[in-house]
Amino acid sequence: MLHVKNLTASVGEAEILTGLDLEVGAGEVHAIMGPNGSGKSTFAHALAGRDGYEIAGEAILDGVDLLELEPEERAAAGVFMGFQYPVEIPGVNNMYFLRTALNSVRRARGDYEISARDFLAVANEAMELVEMKEGFLNRSVNAGFSGGEKKRNEILQMAVMQPRLAVLDETDSGLDIDALRVVANGVNSLRGPERSMIVITHYQRLLDYIKPDFVHVLVNGRIVESGDHTLALHLEDHGYADFVADDAALSGAPA
């Protein structure tokens, strides 16, 4: 479903992704872990289409090269990114934003647009999923939201957009244990045979709630180790030191 091959990303002189390979099959959940600065967020943004990176390589979703597309075209192709820091947009109504987003994507796919009334049903279902109260949709997008509310809003959007590929960038950061449970439940209920997920996290904690099929370790901009969920447990006990040292030796850089 998703084939990432030799993906590189740099900003100016700094090479952040240095040849990342990843294969994600339909319905699979892949966790990507790694130390700070290893390129986890850059990988997510490279898939979502943020400006400002020099990108090379391949990222092919269902036969479509994402790297050729604008961010909104990637969304139409089925990519959804859950932001680590969801952006506050004062003055833009959350409900209006969601409906505009869904209908933009539907229009791009040649589907009919959903009316305000029908959308309400879609939105209400998504709200239940993340245990949100009704007033939530009438507020401005993320403006003045608590950290937990912002992350729940991301999952709410994901539930509305029903993406083919969800890339969740540190969705667990800044969440207390209750919010983490809500967010994880939301993610789990959105798992399905036709939907793949890449869950980026710094800590093993999230993976207690969202059981990945595969765990990858990202160091210095490429994946240096892959395994099943036990790899995450190993990282919890031993940290990234082994991998960082190995990678440094491999690339000939001083440790």
Partner: peptide
């Protein structure tokens, strides 16, 4: 914010309009 909106499938012109009108 523009990138955030676009990542949700909203085209550049529409995203700009949303932000301007929001302001």
């Amino acid at each position: 914010a523009l990138y955030y909106l676009r990542s949700r499938g909203i085209g550049q012109a529409e995203a700009r309009r949303l932000l301007i009108n929001g302001f």
